[in-house]
Amino acid sequence: MNVRQALITAANPRQRSLPLQILIDRDGVPRSALEIVLQEAAGAGIERFCVVVCPGDENAYTAACGPYRAQTEFAVQAEPRGYGDAILCGRAQIGADPFLHLVGDHIHLSDATASCARQLLDVAATEKTSVSAVQPTHESQLTSFGAVGGKLLGGDLPLYEIEAVLEKPTPTLAEQELLVPGMRAGYYLCFFGLHVLDQQIFESLEAERSKAPDQLLGLSAALHQLAGQRRYLALNIAGRRYDIGGHYGLLHAQLALSLGGKDRDQVMTQIIELLGQNPR
C-alpha cells in the first residue's frame, strides 16, 4: 500500500482555531499546530495534503500551513454534520488512492526513531490493508475516544486484527464488546488520531449516512462496518498523542514538545522556578 496523500480534519466549529495555535517545536522553532501535523505526515513521505475546514477558514489555514502551503488543498465542510461527514468532504480530493488520516487537533510524538506516522505507514505497506494507530488507554478516559476490540496477531509488532469499533463507549459496554486478550485489566485500545484508510471508508460512511441521514455522522460506526467486511488492523504505536483541544491540552502538548527537544533544560528550569514561587 503506497500512501502519498493525507486527509486532515480541522472543521470542528467549536475548535476551529486550535490548529492555528502557535507551539514551539522540538527544535525550538515556533510553528502552528497545523504545520506540526503536516510536518509529521511529510516526514513520513506524504506529498499531498487535504485539510477539511469550516467555511471561511481557508485563508487562515493557508497561512498556518508554513512550508507545506503549495502541497495543501482545502475541502470545506459546509455544515457541522459530524466527524465522518468531514472525512466524506475530502473524498473528491483524495480520489481512489489510500490515504493517511490525521486529526488537526492532535500532536503526535514518537518514542521510537521512526515518527508515529511512519510507523503506521510501514505497517500499511507491509500488510497491504487499512490500519489505525491505537494506544492502551485507561478506562476512565474511554468516553473521550473511539476504541477497538480484537486479537493480537503475533509477530514482532504489537499489531491487532480489529473485530469491533465503538465510539466513546462506557466501560460497561467496552468490557463486553471490546475484549483484547493480553491487555492489562482496565485498559482498552483507543484511537490515536492516525489512520491509513482507503476509499472503502467512504463507501462505509455513505452507507452509515443512508441509515440516518438527519443525524451527525461519526467515523467509528463506519470503521466497525469496515472491520466486519475485511481485514482491518490496529497498531499499538510507539509514541504519544496530545489532544490540544482537551483541558490544558495545548499546555500539555507544548510541555511534551519542549521536554523532548533541545530546550528541555531551559523549560525544566522555568518549571522548577514556578514551582518554587508557588509552593501550594
Binding site: 485507561h138 478506562e139 476512565s140 474511554l142 462506557t170 466501560p171 460497561t172 468490557e175 482496565g186
Partner: peptide
Amino acid sequence: WMFRLGHPQDQP
C-alpha cells in the same frame, strides 16, 4: 470495571 474504580477522577 466498577471494582477497579477508586477515585472520582477515574469515573468515566
